[in-house]
């Protein structure tokens, strides 16, 4: 990497689907500094989720180069350890496991680490308390409101202390009031933990909160 302070460096990144008929990413060049809060906007289908997936190594790009937190993500290897250590995903839908309690859902990412059993519980509950969910640790997700579920999902994303949080429309399924609470939480985390935050949103006023706004259009930054 050229610049030590860049946690993400992407050059001419391309990703096509259906044998190149759809170019979800069509030459992305992007550098993001460690601890930066970047908002990602663009019309539906412009490639926002695809870009996030590339940064989180959920999928591999076809062309170009992408380095995240010191990992070359164009390598043909398994990046589960990278995801476990460096990335916290938050999705539009909470995607919690319905038969596990709130606390257990937050512990799931730690099963891939060597954290001891009791320590897992402690850490999960501590994070849940900081998210004002301490009174809900033993509840099943089905008993929670939408905003509460998303807070649990945030807890799950944070529990392994990632260096980057990738939030793909985290308020998309919430009413604006609840959404604002979630955004406030994310901004607080960003400030306190000095974590890099990339937030996909459709709301211009949300995008304004970020250090930097990026607009995507047809797989390119405009």
């Amino acid at each position: 990497m050229n610049n030590e302070s860049n946690i993400i460096e992407i050059k001419n990144l391309k990703k096509g689907y259906d044998h190149g008929q759809t170019m979800a990413l069509n030459g992305i060049n992007l550098e993001i500094k460690k601890g930066e809060f970047v908002s990602l906007m663009g019309p539906s289908g412009s490639g926002k989720s695809t870009l996030l997936n590339m940064i989180g190594a959920l999928d591999r790009a076809d062309e170009g180069s992408i380095h995240v937190a010191g990992y070359n993500l164009m390598e043909k290897e398994d990046f589960s350890q990278f995801r476990s250590k460096e990335i916290g995903f938050i999705f539009q839908f909470h995607n919690l496991i319905p038969n596990l309690t709130v606390s257990e859902n937050v512990q799931i990412p730690m099963l891939e680490t060597d954290v001891a059993d009791e320590e897992m519980v402690k850490r999960a509950n501590k994070i849940l308390e900081s998210l004002n969910m301490g009174h809900r640790i033993d509840h099943l997700p089905t008993k929670l409101s939408g905003g509460e579920r998303q807070r649990v999902a945030i807890g799950r994303a944070l529990v392994n202390h990632p260096s980057i949080i990738l939030a793909d429309e985290p308020t998309g399924s919430l009413d604006s009031k609840t959404g604002d609470i979630i955004l406030k939480i994310l901004r607080e985390i960003h400030q306190k933990e000095n974590v890099t935050l990339i937030l996909v949103t459709h709301e211009p006023y949300v995008a304004e909160m970020a250090d930097r706004k990026i607009n995507l259009m047809d797989g390119k930054i405009s």
Partner: peptide
Amino acid sequence: TREIGVLKAVGWTSKR
């Protein structure tokens, strides 16, 4: 299916 996607996203290996 979705849940397995989440497990991979939070860092679970294919082996796990």
